[in-house]
Design a protein around this nucleic acid. Structure first.
Length: 131
DNA sequence: TGTGTGACAAAGC
DNA sequence: AGCTTTGCCACAC
């Protein structure tokens, strides 16, 4: 038997689990030119302490075409990791800059984080409730 | 059931 | 302003 592709590329198939599906649904709402923190997403789901779990969800995102995981950053304005780890941080920064996000000079930190921060997620009761 | 993992966060220094 | 420490959570095995 061949190994599943997920294993070959270093990702596991977490995207099917309920929690991650909800996360992806929210992240998909973030418009271009806006960013949100891992913790913001967790909070929107009513699990304010699950920032770390949101990070896990991003690391295992299978559908970057519809789930703009580069728009999820750290609560202090640092871009955080991308595409599996710190190697991707610069690319993440570039992608965000291309969308109009401003950065501090030679830094991975967003300037005026507040100004670009998106928190108003639309959550239907259904999405939360459905286990 | 219990343990280990990680793209985090807030507090402490 | 930049560490380190400690707490957190969902999920895989």
């Amino acid at each position: 038997m061949n190994k599943p592709i997920e294993e070959l590329i270093g990702k596991k198939n977490l995207s099917a689990s309920p929690f991650f599906k909800k996360v992806y649904t929210l992240v998909a709402q973030i418009p271009e030119g806006k960013v949100s923190a891992y913790g913001d997403v967790a909070k929107a789901l009513g699990i304010s302490g699950a920032a770390r779990a949101v990070g896990t969800a991003m690391a295992n995102n299978r559908d970057s075409k519809h789930v703009p995981c580069h728009r999820i950053v750290r609560s202090d304005g640092n871009v955080g990791f991308y595409k599996g780890g710190p190697e991707g941080s610069m690319e993440k920064r570039k992608r965000l800059m291309d969308e109009g996000i401003e950065f501090l000079e030679s830094s991975l930190k967003i300037k005026n984080f507040d100004k670009f921060r998106y928190k108003k997620f639309n959550i239907s009761l259904q999405e939360i409730t459905k286990s």
